[in-house]
Amino acid sequence: MAIPRLAATVILMRTPFEVYLTRRSSSSSFAADAFVFPGGTVQAQDGTPAAHARVHGRNDDAASRTLLVAAMRELFEEAGVLLACTKAGYRLEAGRINAEEIASERAGVRDGALPFADFLASHDWYADARALAPFSHWITPSSEPRRYDTHFFLAIAPADQTVTADSIETHDGCWISPSEALARHRARRLHLVYPTIKHLERLAAFSELESLRDFARSKPIYTIEPATTMEGDFWIPAELEGAW
């Protein structure tokens, strides 16, 4: 039985209510060609004291900080969005983060040449933990050879930043409403994997970010590991539908 790898995923949202999905490249080892939320596995660099020192906003334990750094880094790598603040916790003024100016640094973070913490430090920016709201916790069924222990976070896209897909892990990105994504999936025009589908179904019950945010604040997080049916499909029993 494979041990799940720790991973962080960010559900990036904007008004009117849409979420950002990136298409995994067809050569990806996992969920090739599927549209997914930006995210990836936790790396050693996410757990260093240098990385933890670059998190602002919550007095979290080490394990939680590592996850936050991983989520921030993956969001930056895959969508080009940086949820950053100053040392004192102020939001950066509009336009401070310019995608074109930091494009080469983003490439460096993405290919591992530039540690994310070093990149933040060089600008004296801090990862703004307040911008990420923990939402859910999924573990891939133990029947799978490749398993992830994934923490999902909600985030609202900063109005002054443009979201841009990278060209290596993901080669396409889109803003889409959860219900539209599900409709296209049913029409076989959009390839989605099970955890993405279940999250989109959950999100589709909301029409605006504010009500979703209130829900996320009051929602307890229960770990869910879907079962695998005899046909090999992932499955959550009806009794647990609302319980994750």
């Binding site: 720790l6 979290d60 334990d61 080490a62 394990a63 573990i139 997080i221 770990t223």
Partner: peptide, 19 residues
């Protein structure tokens, strides 16, 4: 330091290396 399962929600300093 407090050690716990990597998936644990309790505050901990270090993830246990499973197996």
């Amino acid at each position: 330091p407090i050690y716990a399962h990597p998936a644990s929600s309790i505050p901990h300093d270090r993830d246990l290396e499973l197996e």
